[in-house]
């Protein structure tokens, strides 16, 4: 579904990504973890086209999308959420999601009833009750769910989630995990960045660990959790 090849990003003197390659197979839920400042969000920005890589390629399916602008990539089935929340703060919760469904319709995809699908999605992520609220009244945790619903409204085939679980309570985060598993079962692929290790370990089939702009480990949750390098860099000893 997605292949990232040898991506390098520089900010002035800082090398935020130093030749990262990874793959998200069709229908897989892949985790991307790593210490703060490792370059996870930067990689998301490169994949979605918000950041130009200094070197390297991004492929969706077998098409090279490295030179496409963000909205073209979105139309090819790429959706994402943001770590620093980017909701449409003048709109209601429902309108936020509706805007995405309508956008999808405007680029010629079949979307017979955007308003209904928006409501259904909100129900699905557990925001049915606050549908009519203005979005700037919601606590941060729920805003992340609004972002998830909005991303889903474009019906992406690949979904990039940047810390969707932060700010959620234990219960909400469990529900989110179930939702992710559901989505993958429906045939979607997901790349998940998250510091809630429990959540990541529970739902992901494969995990990449990024540190200082390089992948330092790849494997199943078990393998990664037992890897001493990962423990030292990220998990700490207690979490093992």
């Amino acid at each position: 579904m997605l292949r990232v090849e040898d991506v390098e990003v520089r900010f002035g003197g800082v090398q935020a990504l130093k030749g990262v390659s990874l793959e998200v197979p069709d229908g897989a839920l892949v985790g991307l973890i790593g210490p703060n400042g490792a370059g996870k969000t930067t990689l998301f920005n490169v994949i979605t086209g918000l950041e130009k890589p200094f070197r390297g390629r991004v492929l969706m399916g077998d098409q090279d999308v490295t030179s496409l602008p963000p909205h073209q990539r979105a139309r090819r089935g790429l959706g994402r959420t943001f770590q620093r929340i980017e909701v449409f703060s003048s709109l209601t919760v429902h309108e936020n999601v509706l805007a995405a469904a309508e956008a999808r319709r405007s680029w010629g995809r079949d979307e017979p009833e955007p308003a209904r699908s928006a409501s259904e999605l909100l129900e699905r992520v557990g925001l049915g009750d606050v549908e009519r609220e203005r979005v700037d009244k919601l606590p941060t945790g729920l805003l992340r769910l609004v972002e998830v619903a909005r991303a889903l409204a474009s019906r992406p085939r690949l979904l990039l989630l940047d810390e969707p679980g932060s700010g959620l309570s234990t219960h909400e985060s469990e529900a989110l995990g179930d939702l992710l598993v559901d989505l993958v079962r429906d045939g979607r692929s997901i790349l998940l960045v998250e510091h809630d290790v429990e959540l990541v370990m529970r739902v992901c089939q494969q995990i990449h660990v990024l540190d200082f702009g390089s992948i330092i480990a790849t494997g199943t949750p078990d393998q990664v959790q037992r890897d001493p390098v990962v423990q030292a860099a990220y998990l700490g000893t207690s979490a093992a």
Binding site: P70, A74, R80, W107, R150, A151
Partner: peptide
């Protein structure tokens, strides 16, 4: 709605397929 959305967050608008 698209106009208002675009004004609130260009990045999010772009990632839902709006140019």
């Amino acid at each position: 709605r698209r106009l208002i959305a675009l004004n609130d967050s260009p990045a999010a608008s772009a990632t839902m397929g709006v140019s």
